[in-house]
Nucleic acid binder design. Sequence first.
DNA 1: GGATAGTTACTCGGATACCATGTGTCCGAGTCGTAACGG
DNA 2: CCGTTACGACTCGGACACATGGTATCCGAGTAACTATCC
Lengths: 162, 162
Amino acid sequence: MKMSAGVEWSLHCCTALSTSARPVPVTKLAELHGVSQTYLAKHMQALSRAGLIHAVEGRDGGYLLSRPGAEISVYDVVQAVDGPEPAFRCTEIRQQGPLPATGEACKVPCGIAKVMAAAETAWRDSLQAVTLADLAATLDSTSPGAWDAVRHWLSGTRFDAP
Amino acid sequence: MKMSAGVEWSLHCCTALSTSARPVPVTKLAELHGVSQTYLAKHMQALSRAGLIHAVEGRDGGYLLSRPGAEISVYDVVQAVDGPEPAFRCTEIRQQGPLPATGEACKVPCGIAKVMAAAETAWRDSLQAVTLADLAATLDSTSPGAWDAVRHWLSGTRFDAP
DNA sequence: GGATAGTTACTCGGATACCATGTGTCCGAGTCGTAACGG
DNA sequence: CCGTTACGACTCGGACACATGGTATCCGAGTAACTATCC
């Protein structure tokens, strides 16, 4: 089981976006994090399709969070990039073979599927409890002023710093 | 993020093994669940390497649980088949780009990595709380006598039923 | 000086190759049960 | 009748192809800002 690296990139980018009131192009985001521009663009498109961010077109355009960072959970981002389907998918092999489960027992989901689903629910709940604003606040507490530097850099080449 | 189908197969097989005191060959397990013998064999090898089951060689051999089903958690099986490394891997992109995190901030793990790790811990804890014996008991409560049928079938072609 | 049309540069968006990992299969090494054989 | 030996069949174990999805890239469509021109 491997999660796409795009999830990590997207989380960092969305957290950065949550601190910027101005549209930020993919070029900037990729350079800031030192990752591939084109591949990051692919994931940003996924976030855009999911409605988490929206694009400002044209020159000086870029991406902007659709909602405040406090209203976007980490799970929202993970789901947008990684897809909504659960990692474990029951293929109902209990209905196969020489001793298939009877229609009676199949009324309820497979016990194994239930356990796996419960675990994924716990995982999802844990991610839903954290918002982008929480992430930003955490970083801000460990290294104060970091976001100011990011904000300053994001707008650095466009107009001079005050 | 996709989990290997072998996880589902392995869980079903291990649960079946937990009800059998006799070695069960892969051939039987695959036929019972209606899956590929050779591919299932691959996953059973992984379980064997992990020490969850051990092979009885030679004729009338097969696989046997190394420990009682009550002492093997669902997570043990998942980890054996799926691998121990977590789904989310922090690549420390905070240290890249024009504004890398300073050595001071890197003393503590990345906030995003911490959140993802906490979620995976919740997932793991959920799976560790359930044992193979629990799974067997659940199925037994929904369709009583099912395991007797399985036990009977597993030894069916080898010696006559009582 | 102000409005306007043209130009330019920059942005996103989808369609297109490449590669690692999961999926599926095969054959060989080793071992136990069985049966034949000899004492 | 009992012990030995050879055989055979069955088991696991690792090494070998194929397919799917993540990884990475490119180029085209569209838009807003800027500039130069004209009134």
